[in-house]
Design a protein around this nucleic acid. Structure first.
Lengths: 340, 340
DNA sequence: TATATTTGCTTAAACGTTTAAGCAAAAGTA
DNA sequence: TACTTTTGCTTAAACGTTTAAGCAAATATA
């Protein structure tokens, strides 16, 4: 009892021409007369013809689908990147399949398999925190489809990458804190094995050295950067016999956790301790005090990632090369670092 | 120079059997000997065979893709629903395509077209705020594929729906505020044309009447429930000559906006005004004071939506029927309504 | 032993589209 | 007029799978 879809063949039958002519008419082939084209389009509309995407994808060898992998969609950064990827790709006739890894390496592998299985024409991804083994990403490359990374990337893969200048951002943050009179600046960073977090750590250390401030091991801690871990690591810093007067935290969620803890302990931010986050999540401007943070240009990153993908599919050499686009980040000064 | 994928035919050639036998062997058909099956699977692995999903989808008339439409992925509620939909469907061999409407009717229509074009086997959706015209949703139904709505649904479509009991939730909130001694309870609700928001408004009004409290038109305002609009509508309520001593806001983001404004104006929450939100977004437990809210059971809604879809595809009658699953919501009491 | 059933495969068509190749008719050129 | 080119289509194969139908050999049943 299921309704049959109208196919190209149905249109051909009505007009008494070949299916091939119909297909060409619908694609505005120059070898089809205007008269026939008009007739085909009219009948197509009448019969409510909807092209079968699977058939054309199979025949043409491309699905016009692009896979997107992000650690999670709930962060504003990622959802904004996705939205911008979508806008750019939709215009070119691509649709996107969004998957989340939830920062899990295993889930990320499953996602990659899923996307490859679905015959996507390319993958745009930001890697999970856990990911160290790159073999699944090599699998994508070996398929000969473009792979574009953003934010959480990896040089060793030799593919396109779009991100911000993490090293400079860190430097900027530390100098900002110094300009506010801070003398003992701690850093709650991400895991060193992730390139971006390592860069932030390097930026922090170099800035500290450049300004002849004390660089103590105890002032630099690694964290998963979840809200809970932010609290925990803050507590550790407070427990030091000589606690910091400023803390720069490599993720806004962790910064929020740290801020909560400080407030609970009756420590004034920014007067006792200045605090800076990273990512410019919307809540940074909503909490009290508002949190100074780094704007990562999510919209631009999304657009560039999509455009980079498009560039790659258009040049149909299989070979990928390392190609990094690094944007300058922007410090958004808010109350949490405005020591009076 | 592109690598050729291995196909079923390649395996057949190696083993000198027919492609049909290979296909059956891979699907564990009972009419294929164990010996052949083993051989096929061995060669498949050796040649790194990856089934061409497009071909099988075309042949079988189903894509094993399910489309998901949400207003936005950045809200924790929706991203949690999506994650749970994904988990359930992945187990059954389905993959999902996530699209966001950004609360825009036009974008939602485009998303629907996109999904239908991609030949999804079904759509699970939560409607945009703007959506009143249901013709695009009728289009999905007319394709004969299952449509499952959640949270933002519409009875008139006569399809499956999963949501919480909005009316009862409102009632519960009002009674909670009354129990805390509040006497003038205002409601910043969503747009009435959206069924769930209308139900919340009805629950509010009925609860007010049931307890013989004053129901003034000025105490009930409609809002887009964005953070900004929450501020705005709160300001309106404060401007009344007789302002409320409690406000129940139908969305957490708007509640956050309202809370910000109250703090800026030096009005103590909960002592001067009690405040209750809706949705139990993570930040409700992070801000000061923490915000009393309603837990919408996002995980369960996601699972149920996916299971409902699966049930529908399994019973292959085209006819859909109105089938509502309503979960009881849960009030999470926090500081913003604990008047001392 | 003769017949029926089961096993294990093969053949061929189908899903709906695209496209290379081909061909007759019309139009252009010398 | 005789040739070439262009126009406007058709034919047929292809994309990689699945599956209905069929068939010979092996096995079971009477």
């Amino acid at each position: 009892m299921k309704k049959k879809r109208t196919t190209i063949k149905d249109i051909a039958t009505v007009l008494n021409i070949s299916p091939a002519a119909v297909s060409k008419a619908l694609h505005d082939d120059s070898r089809i007369s205007t008269k026939t084209k008009d007739a085909v389009k009219r009948v197509a509309k009448e019969l409510n013809y909807q092209p079968n995407h699977l058939a054309s994808a199979l025949r043409k060898g491309k699905s016009n689908l692009v896979g997107v992998i992000v650690p999670r969609t709930s962060s504003n950064f990622f959802s904004s990147v996705i939205q911008n990827i979508e806008e750019v790709l939709n215009k070119e006739g691509y649709n996107i399949i969004i998957t989340q890894s939830n920062e899990s390496f295993k889930k990320e592998c499953r996602n990659i398999d899923t996307l490859l299985f679905t015959q996507v024409d390319g993958i745009i991804a930001s890697m999970a925190n856990e990911t160290v083994d790159l073999s699944y990403y090599e699998k994508i490359k070996s398929k000969g489809i473009p792979l574009v990374l953003f934010d959480r990337g990896e040089n060793d893969l030799n593919v396109d990458y779009i991100g911000i200048n993490d090293y400079d951002s860190s430097f900027m943050i530390v100098e900002h804190l110094i300009s506010k009179g801070c003398k003992r600046i701690a850093h709650i960073g991400g895991f060193r094995h992730t390139r971006i977090f390592n860069n932030r750590i390097r930026g922090y250390i170099d800035a500290i050295h450049a300004h002849n401030l004390p660089h103590e091991d105890a002032l630099l801690v690694e964290s998963s950067l979840t809200l809970e871990d932010g609290r925990l690591k803050m507590q550790e810093l407070l427990a030091l016999e000589n606690p910091p007067d400023a803390v720069y935290i490599a993720g806004d969620y962790a910064a929020l956790g740290a801020l909560q803890l400080l407030k609970e302990q009756g420590i004034s931010v920014p007067n006792d301790i200045c605090l800076v986050g990273f990512g410019n999540e919307p809540f940074t401007s909503l909490v009290t005090p508002t949190i100074t943070s780094i704007n990562q240009h999510s919209a631009q990153i999304g657009q560039l990632a999509a455009e980079t993908f498009l560039k790659r599919v258009k040049m149909d050499t299989v070979k990928q090369t390392l190609n990094k686009i690094i944007l300058d980040a922007e410090l958004i000064e808010r109350d949490s670092s405005q020591k009076k």
